[in-house]
């Protein structure tokens, strides 16, 4: 996946300007930068979530397997199936059981066979490191779980439809340290199967989990490179200022 000169306007104001970022397959790309710098805006452009907001206008290209996801005739529903998303706050569907939450995406494509659903639910919950905690109460309501568990439900739910890319917008910012740890551990395993783009305003987290890091500031991408290089030897002085904690 890759963006070319991507600009996202909210009305007249650009939330993100001219960003060209390569997202490497089966790697974790972290987006860092101070609050309001456009990380979320950028991320949501990747799976066309901005389509839901009529004031947003998008320029530039977002390429998935070499094809522009914004090209005329491309169905955003198909794009969102291929590029999944996990939000900042856990979003379990409150009327559904744990099981139904996880297989919600499969139900959308009309899969009904109980065995198949169970198999996928188990696989996704294992991938989200939640299986052991919930396997005996799959039919309980998902809202009864803790925040960390709910967030892993959201991850399992996104994984269940086997996306090629998984977008995560500060997935641990609402969680306690132990849940955060659980999710960070998970990311390392997940990248075997899926390309990950993760937004975080926690630099340690970006350093710990990602292979590449992009630094955003005021809607622009200032610097992009291998995580280790970017954190030890930033090319831009604004990046350096940010990672050494001198602002933001």
């Amino acid at each position: 996946m890759e963006t070319e000169n991507l600009t996202v306007y909210y009305g007249k104001n650009a939330g993100v300007r001219g960003v060209s970022l390569p997202v490497y397959d089966r790697k974790i790309t972290a987006l860092i930068g101070p609050s309001g710098c456009g990380k979320t805006t950028f991320l949501r452009a990747l799976n066309r979530m901005h389509d839901l907001n009529p004031i947003v206008r998008i320029e530039g290209r977002v390429l998935l397997d070499g094809e522009d996801v914004y090209a005329p005739g491309v169905d955003p529903v198909v794009i969102r199936r291929r590029v999944g998303m996990v939000f900042q706050r856990p979003t379990p569907f409150p009327t559904m059981s744990i099981f139904e939450n996880v297989v919600a995406g499969l139900r959308l494509v009309g899969i009904r066979e109980r065995d198949r659903l169970r198999e996928v639910a188990e696989r996704s919950l294992k991938a989200a490191a939640l299986w052991d905690e919930v396997k005996d109460r799959l039919n309980d309501p998902a809202v009864g779980l803790s925040g960390g568990q709910q967030q892993r439900i959201s991850i399992a739910r996104a994984l269940a439809v086997e996306p090629e890319v998984l977008l995560m917008d500060e997935p641990t910012s609402a969680l306690d340290p132990i849940s955060t740890q659980a999710i960070e551990d998970l990311l390392g395993e997940l990248k075997e199967q899926v390309t990950i783009v993760i937004v975080t305003h926690n630099m340690q987290q970006a350093a710990r989990v990602s292979d590449r890091t992009a630094f955003f500031l005021d809607g622009e991408m200032i610097e992009f490179g291998p995580t280790e290089r970017l954190f030890t030897n930033p090319a831009d002085e604004r990046t350096e200022a940010y990672i050494t904690g001198r602002f933001g």
Partner: peptide, 26 residues
């Protein structure tokens, strides 16, 4: 957030209404 979570799974508008909005608003 509830609607977006379902859209992000690849739901159409009607699917979001049927599977998220109506159950939530029941």
């Amino acid at each position: 957030s509830q609607r977006e979570a379902m859209y992000a799974l690849g739901a159409t508008r009607w699917e979001v209404v049927r599977r998220v909005v109506l159950p939530y608003a029941r």
